[in-house]
Design a protein around this nucleic acid. Structure first.
Length: 220
DNA sequence: GTTCCGATTTTCT
DNA sequence: GAAAATCGGAACA
């Protein structure tokens, strides 16, 4: 743990990284560093869990069958932008737009491991600490100070993703996505199997049948 | 330990 | 008016 992260402008991932198939980007984002300068304070964490959301072929995506709306239009925009929205009235979700201009696609960042700005995150997440700081999409958005105002911003400014060593396939798991009302059986969720910041994804209350045969190892 | 319920607001029908 | 890519707290075992 520890090891404060030092932001190096030369390592900021450009739009080219995101201008690829959404599932590929979701897998490769694992291990990269997500950073925010919201409020003038630098906070960052290693991405340990992501989910891919495609376009009209994906029933779980906001872009499914409805086409472009005021909310999801950013998903159709240029890659390398942030797509932020509010759900359940209180929680912001941070997505990174993928694919080319005109093609819907985004990767939801579900969990990160804090590496910089710990004190700020704890303050923003009053009462929480340790793995409860950022082990869920609504939690990490709160910890990084991300809100609706960041929708559509280009990555590299207030929000940025820094390159870092990739992770081996034997440390990556894949499973169905969490919390969806449809399309939760597609293996589009990627996570680090040995990281305690990964959200467990609710072992029971909601969704009757998710879990997709337990946890398939990402050797695919 | 696990399971269930309510909050709160934006977006879309 | 209803649903939503969730979270945190309360209740029960």
């Amino acid at each position: 743990m520890t090891g404060s992260f030092e932001p190096d402008p030369a390592r900021i991932l450009s739009a080219a990284f995101f201008a690829r198939p959404t599932a590929t980007v979701a897998r490769e984002l694992l291990g990269k560093v997500l950073a925010s300068r919201a409020g003038g304070v630098f906070t960052a964490g290693v991405i340990v869990e992501t989910e891919a959301y495609l376009g009209s072929d994906d029933p779980g995506s906001h872009a499914a069958t409805r086409g472009v709306t005021a909310r999801n239009r950013v998903m159709y925009g240029p890659p390398g932008c942030a797509y932020v929205y509010l759900t359940y009235g209180n929680h912001h979700m941070l997505n990174l737009v993928t694919e080319g201009q005109g093609v819907a696609g985004a990767v939801l960042v579900r969990a990160i491991e804090p590496v910089s700005g710990l004190e700020v995150m704890e303050a923003r997440r009053a009462g929480r600490a340790d793995s409860e700081l950022t082990n869920g999409p609504g939690k990490l958005a709160s910890a990084l100070g991300i809100d609706l105002g960041h929708t559509g911003v280009t990555l590299g400014g207030e929000i940025a993703v820094y390159d870092a060593a990739g992770v081996d396939d034997d440390r990556v798991g894949a499973s169905g996505r969490i919390g969806l009302s449809a399309g939760h059986d597609l293996p589009l969720r990627f996570y680090l199997t040995d990281n305690r910041y990964v959200s467990r994804g609710r072992t029971g209350p909601r969704s009757p049948g998710r879990a997709v045969g337990g946890q398939m190892r990402g050797t695919a």
